[in-house]
Nucleic acid binder design. Structure first.
Length: 461
RNA sequence: UCUUCCUUAGCUCAGCCGGUUAGAGCACUUGACUGUUAAUCAAGGGGUCCUUGGUUCGAGCCCAAGAGGGAGAGCCA
């Protein structure tokens, strides 16, 4: 018999029809002559209930139908006699594909802490919470492509292995095939001549520089791929391996960039509200009663836009006592950003025109020579969800900045070439996919919105 | 990396001032129950109190070091 997905079965009103489902047992409730088994197959957060009249089955036949087991159940779709579900299956046959020894299977019917589930990341997709998160993760990834495709952007695959130590976004993981016990060292320096690529290589920390090259030909591009940072960051907002989306648009200036970022985030949140309602309802009930309201609020309200200088003025005169002093020229602390977003405006905030000293070399300098056309989108509870800028398209100014910072113009020759040949104003940004996931799922820890988190001292699974 | 908190049964956690045999709920096993909804009821089994060292007549509890985890900070997306 053809298998039907539980998602489709729960919508069916085809009572009396013979059906077949396959999935994992979430719970079994016994009494003398009848047993109720809740089955989930991952197609939807809800389970289907199979009703088993035990006298019709041989003794011990149902012994292996226990929490965690994988089963195939055939039977008749009927309207439920009990409360709590509208349809159920009156089972005629039960086959166990895979047992799950209840003495050793770690998942129970009752709730587990998120910390415990992290230790059994190979099994946590079988929980309601991670089923919901993984379905939403897929929906958000799909929506990213749909958004850009509808706007005529080209998806560009930038390299994961990079030879440039100049992306400037943090510590990098080395890539090598050298025997780590016999590294060739000459005059205190490692000789990479005989390494696989013949030069020092790393995992990418950003696809931006390559993305810019493509934007200078295709106009509107985006990247969406894994990104690696070897920072010793131990927070609920950082991963060593995460996924980043980086659009880059020729002829866009800072305002266009902000508009794109705001449209993009609203599109994604709206997509979640319209397409993930069952999962969102579950997450709202279990983790954050205000989750759905927060998502609606973001879709319905404009983001606040203000300059770094204006932000500093507000913070200086707000009367709130901060642990760290607010001072023009230094980067804002988390507590400052959080005050602006969560207390002062109570809305997402886009901060722009930061001092050039605290931002990357490629950002376009303002006429005053002090600030650059940077923009950070700050979200409640998460902080920086997007970081971006209009890029410096002027060759002289860009190379002056490269020299000023002591960077290698030799290594960057290909990037600098874009400013030599047909340069154009352009802008882009990076969205941390898992930070978006934090926001749309209401989860508090970034390790819970990616299937297998990679963090300092943790690469299990 | 810094600050701070935590680590006791499969899970969540209690454990008094340092004192005899370390507890509860859930889970599990067995039994009861004709429709359950995290089913219910009864009985039973289950412990390297994170590790190492120290203080003490005596340590789950006090001290030191280490490991792992959480929260916050820095770095950032």
């Amino acid at each position: 018999m053809q298998r039907i997905k539980i998602k489709d079965l729960l919508k069916s009103t085809n009572y009396g029809s013979k059906v077949c489902i396959k999935g994992w047992v979430r719970s079994k409730r016994d009494s003398k002559t009848v047993a109720f088994v809740a089955i989930n197959d991952g197609s939807i957060i809800h389970n289907i209930q199979a009703v088993i009249d035990t006298p019709n089955f041989e003794e011990d036949y149902l012994k292996d139908v226990q929490t965690g087991a994988c089963v195939k159940i055939e039977g008749t779709l009927v309207q439920s006699q009990g409360k709590g579900q509208s349809v159920e299956i009156q089972a005629s046959s039960v086959e166990v594909y895979g047992k799950a020894d209840p003495e050793t299977f770690p998942l129970q019917k009752k709730g587990h802490s998120l910390e415990f589930l992290r230790e059994i990341a190979h099994l946590r997709p079988r929980t309601n919470t991670f089923g919901a998160i993984l379905r939403m993760r897929h929906a958000m990834a799909f929506a990213v492509h749909q958004f850009f495709n509808s706007k005529g952007f080209v998806y560009v695959h930038t390299p994961i292995i990079t030879g440039a130590d100049c992306e400037g976004a943090g510590e990098m993981f080395r890539v090598t095939t050298m025997d780590l016990k016999k590294i060739p060292i000459e005059n205190g320096q490692v000789n990479f001549e005989n390494d696989f690529f013949g030069k020092e290589t790393s995992l990418t920390v950003s696809g931006q520089l390559n993305g810019e090259l493509a934007a200078m030909a295709l106009g509107e591009i985006y990247t969406f791929g894994p990104t690696f940072r070897a920072e010793n960051s131990n927070t609920s907002r950082h991963l060593a391996e995460f996924w980043m989306i980086e659009p880059e648009v020729a002829f866009n200036e800072l305002d266009d960039n902000m508009n794109l970022a705001e449209d993009f985030l609203k599109y994604l949140v709206k997509y979640a509200l319209e397409n993930c309602s069952d999962d969102l309802e579950f997450l709202t009930n279990l983790y954050d009663k205000e989750l759905i309201n927060k998502l609606k609020f973001v879709v319905e309200n404009d983001f606040i836009r203000l300059t770094y200088t204006e932000g500093v003025e507000i913070l200086k005169h707000c009367g709130h006592k901060f642990e760290y002093k607010v001072d023009w020229g230094t980067d804002l602390q988390s507590e400052h950003e959080r005050y602006l977003v969560e207390k002062h405006f109570k809305k997402p905030v886009i901060l722009t025109n930061y001092p050039k000293e605290i931002k990357a070399f490629y950002m376009k300098q303002d006429a005053d020579g002090k600030t650059v056309r940077a923009m950070d989108v700050l979200f409640p509870g998460i902080g920086e969800i997007i970081g971006g800028s209009q890029r410096e398209e002027n060759y002289e100014k860009l190379i002056a900045r490269v020299r000023e910072l002591g960077m290698s113009e030799k290594e960057l020759w290909w990037y600098l070439d874009t400013r030599k040949f047909g340069t154009a104003p352009h802008a882009g940004f990076g969205l941390g996919f898992e930070r978006l996931m934090l926001f749309v799922t209401g989860m508090g820890n970034i390790r819970d919105v990616i299937p297998f988190p990679r963090t300092p001292k943790n690469a299990e699974f």
